[in-house]
Simulated scan of single mutants.
Amino acid sequence: MSAPIVVDGLSRSGGRRVTINGQIAGFAHDDRDLVEFLRRAGLDDAWDLLDDPHWIEWRGRRAHRYEVA
């Protein structure tokens, strides 16, 4: 079973697409953006979930990296 939250690799336009339960929540440009998407989805403990692989799958880049290499 995959994690309910997926953070894709860096997009050409900047940011990383965030999908929650198969629905696009938006593009995060830093962890604060990601936490806000999770908070809006009802996850008030979002900061605690960022490094939990049961909740979040980071794809294409290392976790917490949003800048162009």
Rank of each mutant, 00 (worst) to 15 (best):
A3L: 13
A3C: 09
I5V: 09
I5G: 01
L10K: 08
L10C: 11
S11Q: 13
R12H: 01
R12T: 01
R12L: 00
R12G: 05
S13V: 14
G14S: 10
R16I: 01
R16N: 03
R17F: 03
R17G: 05
T19M: 02
T19C: 00
T19F: 08
T19N: 06
G22C: 02
Q23R: 09
I24R: 11
A25I: 01
G26V: 00
G26N: 02
H29R: 04
D30T: 05
D31I: 11
L34H: 03
V35G: 03
E36C: 01
F37Y: 12
L38N: 06
R39N: 10
A41T: 02
G42S: 02
L43V: 14
D44F: 15
D45E: 12
D45A: 11
A46M: 12
W47V: 13
L49V: 14
L50C: 07
D52L: 15
D52W: 11
D52C: 13
D52H: 12
P53T: 08
W55F: 15
I56K: 02
E57V: 10
W58L: 11
W58G: 11
R59K: 13
R59V: 15
G60Y: 08
G60S: 15
G60V: 13
R61Y: 14
R61Q: 13
R61C: 14
R61E: 06
R62F: 06
A63C: 10
H64E: 04
H64R: 13
R65Q: 12
Y66P: 09
E67I: 05
V68N: 12
